[in-house]
Design a protein around this nucleic acid. Structure first.
Lengths: 144, 144
DNA sequence: CTTCGTCGTAACAAGAATGGTTACTTCGGA
DNA sequence: TCCGAAGTAACCATTCTTGTTACGACGAAG
């Protein structure tokens, strides 16, 4: 499906900020997070920008600049993150409209739309069951 | 997520062949299906090739060539189709391995893998609930 | 045994999404 | 005023999907 790693990087980022703040730091920088996630700071800033628009994080500029959470990890689910960074549907319909003169071509889109809607609904339910706090605890529980 | 329409086109194709065979025809051609789905015959043949490898359809060459189902639409679920044409996972992990020296970097992949596995499991369950016969009936039930 | 329609498949191009990188401007505390 | 980091534009490489053309392989029909 050509899956991307945006949800992964976003979860990584939020867990990192959350842990860092618990260690007494006020803000985290994109460079620190990029170091942990092994990617480029601009990639992190782009993602954090979308998370900020969704109200999950906020940023400070100037001296002592960086990113911080707007609420506790317990009050943040993977669905919140997913909605913040993934715009489109899981499955796409036809690129070009099918032949409406054909019985199948005429009815296939409404028929599949129902199925797809049901699937997206269950995915969203599943995502909403896991908080970022759950993720952080699972991370810390991994033996080293 | 850059969703594709492969599952849609495959379902369209199978429903089309199924209906066509019920109308008394032995085989369907990629050109006929492409006309209904409003795409190119080669696109259909490529998809049908993958469905054939999964054992859902078979093809005949030479005179009177074309495609036919290997079993009834009732015995074919969207999960069978999905497995035949979608190789990868729904969500990807990091492109480059995260910093293993960092607590988050070390534990994030196992932690997220569990979550992702659970989600894929529910998606598969959901897909397995719908047969291609269900799809065809839903298509035929759409008012024109 | 030739013809013809269709499969099978390679090759290529367009388009979009993702991710990485560089570079520059803007902010605001020290 | 200085400086570190955000904000953001621009560009590129890669990959996936889809569409398209082209051509060989096949096999029934005549």
């Amino acid at each position: 499906m050509s899956a991307n790693s945006r949800l992964t990087i976003a979860a990584h980022t939020l867990a990192w900020i959350g842990l860092y703040q618990r260690q007494g730091h006020a803000v985290a920088t994109s460079e620190q997070i990029a170091g942990s996630a092994n990617t480029n700071p601009v990639v992190i800033r782009r993602l954090l920008g979308e998370l900020r628009e969704a109200g999950l994080v906020e940023s400070r500029r100037g001296g002592g600049a960086g990113w911080s959470l707007t609420r506790d990890l317990k009050a943040m689910t993977l669905l919140d993150v997913y909605d913040a960074i993934e715009p489109g549907p899981l499955f796409a319909l036809h690129r070009a409209d099918p032949d409406q003169g054909c019985v199948i071509g005429h009815g296939i889109q409404p028929a599949l739309q129902d199925v797809y809607a049901g699937i997206e609904c269950t995915v969203r339910q599943e995502l909403s069951k896991t908080t970022l706090e759950d993720v952080l605890q699972a991370v810390l529980a991994v033996p080293r």
